[in-house]
Design a protein around this nucleic acid. Structure first.
Lengths: 116, 116
DNA sequence: TGAATATATGATCAGATATTCATATATCTG
DNA sequence: CAGATATATGAATATCTGATCATATATTCA
């Protein structure tokens, strides 16, 4: 009864129908994490720089006008999200994109930005 | 001279080449804002609920298991980003997606999540 | 080995964000 | 008009985030 009263004003059918299409919580979280990777201007620029070539950290920082430390911290996140991978060559660490999906999303997002 | 010394260890050519492909700051910011819209699990679930039908605020809240207030605050952001639009019908406000790009990015992101 | 170079990381801090709570506004209904 | 319903919003708060600074680790080279 209390249950009914609490829910009295909700359109149960619409709610159930919406829930049927709703992504589950785990997928929602994973999805949000992918988009979070591209939700910061610095990371967008890092990703864009890496869409055409690999770069070592300091060249990347120089190209972006960011500090080495800031870039390194962001690369750490991107690494943990498995969006970039690296290879070491002497003192240098060269980064490149590791996830074709990200490049894809990046390009599609960019199209949208450019067409509006 | 100082200039040269500061830049001594950077691969100028690589940096210039990377900069040629870099998105400009404005595009990077716009792009990051689009992705930021989908960078939170609650908003992902709101967007997913609205991909198939319009919903009024309380039904949306009920479907998501969120408070009316929390949903309303998020809808405000989504409104300001022009990602959703609404129509009023009596006391109810029905929301739907306003940006075909978002639905597109959402679906593509979801594919990636489901295939990995 | 010691100095120079390249990158990573911990601490810190300012600003952003998401939620809750209380309340305001608006609409409908009797 | 008064009460009920539906949504919006401001304040407060806890958490997250991104940058900086200082410093640690690792590699090369003289």
């Amino acid at each position: 009864m209390d249950q009914l009263c609490e829910d009295r004003y909700i359109d149960e059918d619409k709610v159930r129908q919406a829930q049927a299409y709703l992504v589950d919580s785990l997928s929602a979280t994973r999805l949000s994490e992918i988009f979070k990777a591209l939700s910061d201007p610095s990371r967008v620029r890092i990703i864009s720089a890496l869409t055409h070539t690999e770069l070592c950290v300091y060249d990347l920082a120089a190209a972006l006008g960011m500090s080495q430390s800031a870039v390194s911290h962001q690369l750490r996140s991107l690494r943990e999200m498995r969006l970039v991978r690296y290879r070491k060559e002497g003192r240098h660490v060269y980064y490149q994109l590791d996830d074709e999906h990200i490049g894809d999303l990046f390009r599609r997002g960019l199209e949208h930005v450019e067409h509006s």
